[in-house]
Simulated scan of single mutants.
Amino acid sequence: MHVNASPAAGIRRCRDPAYCERVSDIDWGQGTYETTAADLLPAARELVDAAQLKPGEHVVDVGAGTGNVALLAADLGARVTAVEPAARLREVIQETAGARDLTVVDGTAASIPLRDGSADVILSNFAVIFAPDPAAAIAELSRVAAPTSRILLTSWLPGVMGKLVGVIVGAVREVTGQNPAAGRIDWHDPAALTTLLAPHGYQVTATTLELEVVTPSAESYWDTRIANHPLGVTTFPILEQAGRLDDVRARFLQTLDDNWTDTTGQVRLPAQYLLATATR
């Protein structure tokens, strides 16, 4: 049975709504998400290592993207189900999986097509944090998780990614009048995660880690990480129609230059994130 829970009372809402707001109806299969997936591979490795997987365990990768986590888990002998709503990305995973024990299914964090208690481990690398209803997503993960399971997820800490994405999403919000999603929470806050997970019998521990994204220049970052990213593909037509795209690009590049560009012009983004582990 799929659970449609309302946001839990007492959960602290996101302090950075420009970042936490998700533009409606993004198809993460648009554009070239593969570049971002490559940037996130070090975090995927940390996530899988922290899970301490055992051969034969059933691992569910929620919001699998191009399959970073799912492939790593399968290579360790786990039986893996990759849950991904974007049809193109499901095809990418299937093409890469080869003979691995890896099944790819269509689903979201709040609607996973697996039976109750069937997962030994649930992993999500910067994915479940985009769930429109956090409580519903956690309720669904908990439904699928076995009684002695563990859930591990990563989420961005306030700072680099929030500041950059905020330039774009803030402008879209000004143009469209779209308000931040009411269900957003601070996924990077262990206390907020405890509020979500404790009712399902989980205890939460967390650690702060960092990954670095490097590009030859600010313009290169815009071209390879933003313009053809699903967020860019979705929002650029809105901004261009409103006559705002050139201004947003200029402010984005200036933000990179002012904060993370060295004397050679190279961009080095030190993005901190939380790796949370919930056990029961």
Rank of each mutant, 00 (worst) to 15 (best):
residue 229 H to G: 03
residue 212 E to S: 10
residue 131 A to Y: 02
residue 187 W to D: 03
residue 207 T to H: 09
residue 167 V to R: 08
residue 257 D to M: 08
residue 258 D to Q: 13
residue 222 W to T: 03
residue 265 G to T: 11
residue 242 A to F: 02
residue 226 I to N: 01
residue 258 D to V: 08
residue 199 P to F: 13
residue 230 P to S: 10
residue 248 V to F: 04
residue 215 T to M: 03
residue 127 A to I: 14
residue 142 S to C: 09
residue 187 W to I: 08
residue 201 G to C: 13
residue 228 N to T: 12
residue 215 T to R: 03
residue 224 T to H: 12
residue 272 Q to Y: 06
residue 257 D to R: 15
residue 164 L to Y: 09
residue 238 I to E: 02
residue 204 V to F: 05
residue 208 T to K: 06
residue 211 L to E: 09
residue 247 D to M: 10
residue 243 G to E: 02
residue 156 W to K: 06
residue 159 G to V: 11
residue 148 T to P: 10
residue 203 Q to D: 14
residue 193 L to I: 05
residue 261 T to A: 12
residue 156 W to R: 13
residue 133 D to L: 14
residue 217 S to T: 14
residue 171 A to M: 11
residue 156 W to Y: 09
residue 206 A to Q: 01
residue 264 T to E: 07
residue 166 G to L: 11
residue 232 G to N: 02
residue 260 W to C: 02
residue 264 T to R: 04
residue 174 E to Y: 10
residue 200 H to L: 06
residue 158 P to A: 15
residue 130 F to P: 04
residue 186 D to K: 13
residue 170 G to D: 03
residue 191 A to W: 15
residue 265 G to V: 12
residue 190 P to E: 08
residue 245 L to T: 02
residue 152 L to R: 00
residue 186 D to P: 04
residue 173 R to V: 07
residue 145 A to S: 07
residue 144 V to R: 00
residue 190 P to Y: 06
residue 252 F to V: 00
residue 138 I to W: 05
residue 245 L to Y: 07
residue 265 G to S: 15
residue 175 V to K: 00
residue 181 A to M: 08
residue 265 G to I: 08
residue 223 D to G: 08
residue 235 T to A: 12
residue 151 I to K: 00
residue 164 L to K: 01
residue 236 F to Q: 10
residue 228 N to K: 15
residue 200 H to W: 10
residue 237 P to N: 15
residue 222 W to F: 12
residue 231 L to W: 03
residue 178 Q to M: 03
residue 179 N to E: 11
